[in-house]
Amino acid sequence: MIDHLETLLGHPVVDWKAGEPLPAGAIPRVAIDYDDYENKRSWTDAFEEFLEEVDTGPLAGLVVGAYDFASSQNSAFVVEAIVAARDQFASLRALFIGDIVSEENEISWILQSDLSPLLEAFPDLEYLGARGGDGLKVGSPRHANLKTLVIESGGLDGGVVRALGEADLPALEHLELYLGTDEYGGTVTIEDLAPILEGRVFPALKYLGLRDAEIVDEVAGALVTAPVLNRIETLDLSLGTLGDEGAQALLDSPLVRGLKKLDLHYHFCTDAMQEKLKQLPLEVDVSDAQSGDEWDGEVHRYVAVNE
């Protein structure tokens, strides 16, 4: 289960409330709650009040929380509002769009939009994160300073990954994608991932997260000889349906041994396999082992974040 962001770029994230001062150094989350929704106070209203009340110049980051409880509007109006206010965010380095938890809206029901205007509007941005794969686009951005890109979804469209394969992000160190399941719109294939796995893009990459993936065993198989492993320090295949098959591939790969960290937490590997993984000469996280749900004589594995 995904919780609200607690920190971003080392700053605490706090809910901004009209009339209440922000703690020094905090990154505000601007969101509407159910009361606002009932009282017809829109996210746009909240953001306007926020801009008026808060000295946004020194803010290092901005988090956008729930913006629409009826799921009738996608995030395009949020993107537009932030782009229009860009001059008021002189220090902005981090943006997260859609810090929405399942108690507010299911991840696959969050309506996203094309976020690329944010990258164009903020050339100094270092961190861009988003939750919700429905309608989400980032295009093939060219951006000199972006270090971190996070896309959390219950199912990621292959088109998003294919477009990223043509991006020009020379500073990108951290790429984190939740691939999800086909049931919730996840269509990413190994082929879509090829430019990333072959290291044709993102020359500065240190962390690669292909998380929450139903195809994680396949991904692990494809990673065994992937040149990107020579570049990165951390491989994160957590939250998916990794079983012994995928784990064995990782175990057998000489390239994996060159990593500093392998994060596999939330997995479906056997105890014996976990023991073998722990013997690898690097930091390995195999916590939160899952046993799968058994019914109708079959064992069903679920990714950690879906729906």
């Binding site: 289960m1 995904i2 919780d3 609200h4 709650d33 159910y34 729930a66 938890v101 399942s102 108690e103 507010e104």
Partner: peptide
């Protein structure tokens, strides 16, 4: 169903 608070990542 009003959104509920969570503790340690659990509702």
């Amino acid at each position: 169903w009003l959104p509920k608070a969570s503790l340690g990542g659990r509702v």
